[in-house]
């Protein structure tokens, strides 16, 4: 998808892979696995420094969990975003769903894919809420150069969330 939008994309597995990158995406997966691998290969502090340098970071689903300060569970995370997330908040796989949502900054609804998704249960005042379900559940938020989404734009053909993230390259953190 990034290549379709004219950007180069590489996979990050070790700290040295972060060198020379302008932005970082942490896609869906299992957040416990992320945590184990990140600790094992010393990625936590390098990613924190990457964030502190003002470069954009986007976490979807497990990536959002990995960004969060509070995940209600003792597992390694970056602790960068001032949000509290609740893991597997909708239930198990049979409770996974797709629904159109309104996202701040996008003109038409976005078809959002929620798979064993987390939600953002609480945000600090410095976090901007970008999308909510009809009942008010927060599913996307931005804090400066950090973007977090509960859903998986990487599983649809809609490039607008990716474009929104790429626009953060041009407008660095407050």
């Amino acid at each position: 998808m990034l290549r379709r939008l004219g950007h180069e994309a590489v996979e990050v597995r070790l700290p040295q892979h972060l060198d020379d990158l302008d932005a970082l995406i942490m896609p869906g997966g299992e957040s416990t696995t992320f945590g184990k691998l990140a600790v094992r290969w010393g990625l936590i502090d390098p990613i924190r420094r990457f964030a502190a340098s003002g470069k954009p970071i986007w976490g979807t689903c497990a990536g959002l969990i990995f960004l969060a300060k509070d995940v209600g569970h003792d597992q390694p995370t970056l602790g960068l975003m001032d949000v509290r997330v609740v893991r597997n908040a909708f239930g198990r796989q049979i409770d996974s769903f797709i629904t159109p949502i309104k996202v701040k900054g996008l003109d038409a609804p976005f078809r959002a894919v929620f798979i064993r998704a987390p939600i953002i249960a609480e945000v600090s005042p410095n976090v901007e809420v970008l999308a909510q379900l009809e009942d008010g559940t927060i599913v996307a938020a931005r804090q400066g150069n950090l973007l977090g989404t509960s859903f998986h734009p990487e599983l649809t053909n809609d490039t607008r969330m990716h474009e929104l993230f790429l626009s953060m390259l041009a407008q660095p953190a407050r």
Partner: peptide
């Protein structure tokens, strides 16, 4: 039992059990 935010009252259309969701996991 969904923990909370199971969102039973919402009338937002929800697609469940589709190929995108099954293959997506």
């Amino acid at each position: 039992e969904p923990m909370n935010n199971g969102n039973p009252t919402s009338n937002q259309p929800r697609e469940v059990g589709s190929d995108t969701l099954k293959r997506g996991l």
